[in-house]
Amino acid sequence: MGSDRGSNAKERARTSSTTGSTALPRASRVRLDQPRPARKRLLPEYDPEAFGRFSERIARFLGTGRFIVWMTLIIILWVLWNIYAPDALRFDQYPFIFLTLMLSLQASYAAPLILLAQNRQDDRDRITHEQDRKESERSIADTEFLTREIASLRMGLGEVATRDWIRSELQDLVKEMEERRSLFPPVISSERDEGDR
């Protein structure tokens, strides 16, 4: 058994050297019918949908009057605390540099979150518009089909004899028969009848 494997390997090596083939052995080939194994990532992984929903919630909250009221109250309390509190308890002196830093930090996080929420909304709108476009195309195709069907029915009905047309044709035939009867009255002969009996 072991000698068979060794001879097979020697045979493959000999045929590849004689044919000039540079094909890799089967074990080291990349399988195209199977997905690649997952790579190790240095960055932490996250669910983009969950993060997108979270950003939309934040963006919705940032666009409300409640956020403006809370932010205004916090800034007023911040300023009042740092003006009227004892010196030992003040954490941000008069130019309020720390307050400016906090507001800049809040703005630097709010802008990308709002943009992310807008991008998700744009994606939803694009999908909705695409579905609406397909639906309108289907309804246009259905309308055109029904229009063609109605036109063919009208053409077919134009060739069908209606009740009024049949009545008028019968009346014309009756008039024609009456005219013929008046022009050519029937001849009644009694002599013929007697001879036939």
Rank of each mutant, 00 (worst) to 15 (best):
E191H: 10
N119F: 15
E45Q: 11
T128H: 10
R41A: 12
I74K: 03
L116K: 04
S168H: 04
L170P: 02
A38G: 11
D122Y: 13
Q34R: 08
A151R: 08
L113P: 00
F184C: 04
E191S: 09
I76A: 04
A110M: 00
A27M: 14
R36T: 05
D87K: 02
R36H: 10
R167G: 05
Y109W: 12
D164P: 01
S28E: 08
S190P: 03
L116E: 02
S189C: 14
L146Y: 07
S55K: 03
A111R: 02
I188T: 12
R167I: 06
L113C: 02
E45T: 09
Q34A: 08
W78V: 00
I97P: 00
S7V: 12
P48A: 02
G20I: 06
Q118D: 10
G158C: 10
E45N: 13
K40R: 13
D125H: 08
R57F: 05
L170F: 15
M71R: 06
E56V: 03
S189L: 13
I97Y: 02
R90Y: 03
L103Y: 00
S17C: 11
S189P: 05
I58T: 07
Q131T: 04
I68E: 11
I97Q: 06
T15A: 14
S7N: 15
K10P: 11
S17L: 12
R36L: 14
F51Q: 14
T18S: 08
P25N: 11
R124Y: 08
P25R: 12
T72L: 07
